[in-house]
Design a protein around this nucleic acid. Sequence first.
DNA 1: CTGCATCCCGCATGATACTG
DNA 2: CAGTATCATGCGGGATGCAG
Lengths: 128, 128
Amino acid sequence: MVTKETVRDPADADVTRADSLAREIFAGVANKWTLLVINVLEQRTLRFTELRTEVDGISHKMLTQTLRHLERDGLVDRTVYAVVPPRVEYQLTEAGQALRSTVNRMCAWTRTYLDHIEAARLRFDSMS
Amino acid sequence: MVTKETVRDPADADVTRADSLAREIFAGVANKWTLLVINVLEQRTLRFTELRTEVDGISHKMLTQTLRHLERDGLVDRTVYAVVPPRVEYQLTEAGQALRSTVNRMCAWTRTYLDHIEAARLRFDSMS
DNA sequence: CTGCATCCCGCATGATACTG
DNA sequence: CAGTATCATGCGGGATGCAG
């Protein structure tokens, strides 16, 4: 009673929707600053300025932008204290922690293959 | 002669060098196209055009660029067959495979938290 | 301290065309 | 089919200033 010929499962629409959304999320998360911010925010709670100094080369603007993005996606919690001067703290949510664990593996990979990659580059560059 | 004064452990130089190199490699790899290419190149061997169609939105130029980068770092092997028309095949090296497994986890993460993130966005956007 | 808006530059990216 | 070169440009991202 279900199928007939080339009729497509109604769920197909959802599949493609989910796919494109997944791609979008993946692309949004797969960038230098986002991953670096997530990485320094391991189980700690940090303030804006602390993040600014820990993430190394990040600019004021990009940090704000990245944090807004992460907050919107529910990967970090933003806590504002009504004091003066303002105090705002950021910490990873459960989803953020989950992502961080994958980022950690990527960092580990980098460390593991450091020499390997360096050697490959020398080899490659010595050609031409 | 060698200067004294702020004498630092000789190993320190290597540590910071390795650190900056690691950051550079991480940053180089942490971008949309690179991760997507690595992802579609799971244990398969693909030709240029096949990659072009599978990676979805990637342009001819960016694919070439990304592949050269990956090849230089020793993450993909490039095999050229001296035939006409030319046939060039790409496949992940062991290092590439290792990286791919981390990318896979990231993809899995995306799928797992899809709904979570979508909901967070709706919540966030409904504010203002 | 944190956040937002504005201006501006340069690079990354895309489009196109040409070789082997 | 695969790769390179050239040109145009849009957007990322830095600097600065102002507000709360």
